[in-house]
Design a protein around this nucleic acid. Structure first.
Lengths: 137, 137
DNA sequence: ATCAGTGCAAATGCTTTGCATCGGT
DNA sequence: ACCGATGCAAAGCATTTGCACTGAT
């Protein structure tokens, strides 16, 4: 993804385009992990050593509120960020705490169909994901 | 659940039976919520005012390790505890942070069948649950 | 020039740890 | 009597907040 593309992603939500936001967003799309704020901070510091951890937190939060990225909480209660917006499920390794994406069109349509046909009383569904716990082998 | 039953639950895992463990376990089975450690602490203090928050945390952890209860993390990174051991899904209200159980045999067998038929490369599945985010209405 | 964004440090909230004392077996 | 369980306070860690300064528009 080039600079103009990133700039557009950020500014179309009405946000100012800053160097910090640029490098943070770049880092998020570049990684296949599900990085923590701390990890993003470490990476981004290599390109911009004066950035502060507080700014990383605020920026990630801003991106989440603007709908540019997603966040979720891992099994240890730590926030994870993800530039992939489409619904997808996660594999949690109980030993290493590694989190991998699991994407399967069949599963997604299966779930979509299920919840379309089974309305939940008093609840409006916005987002469905599957949490799969186990271990890498 | 009477005292003897609770005592058996606790001691069969090799744990000592103490007053604190008794009241904590009682509180967990009595509530239909998904209590936080803090909430359990408040409740239990009514029956045993000298109990400490640290003991509540340690006891809950002990129960989890003994397989007597389950724990998971809510969307704010706070630990939630649950005396129900069978797999079940949760409804997260984005506004109030309330968590409700969602149990549906059809969904459970659908998921079980799916993962029986779709082995995941390099990953051994132990536990599947669905996270449903949205809002109460 | 304005006002949102940033950096820094202090504060917060939940959870864990260390250690002396207590109590179940 | 032994050794795990408890109470208390301090420490730990991820995250948030307050505020003066900076920089994008």
């Amino acid at each position: 993804m080039d600079i103009e593309e990133i700039k557009h992603k950020i500014t179309k939500g009405g946000l100012k385009f800053t160097h910090q936001r640029m490098v943070i967003y770049e880092e998020l799309t570049g990684s296949q992990n599900h990085p923590t704020a701390e990890w993003v901070y470490e990476q981004v510091r290599e390109k911009n050593p004066s950035i502060s951890l507080g700014t990383v937190y605020k920026t990630l939060d801003t991106f989440v509120n603007a709908g540019i990225i997603q966040k979720f909480v891992d099994n240890n209660g730590v926030m994870r960020f993800d530039a992939i917006l489409e619904a997808h499920s996660h594999l949690y390794d109980k030993e290493t705490n590694e989190i991998r994406d699991y994407r399967n069109k069949d599963l997604e349509s299966l779930l979509k169909k299920f919840f379309d046909n089974n309305e939940i009383k008093d609840f409006e569904v916005e987002d469905i994901s599957v949490v799969i716990k186990g271990r890498n082998k």
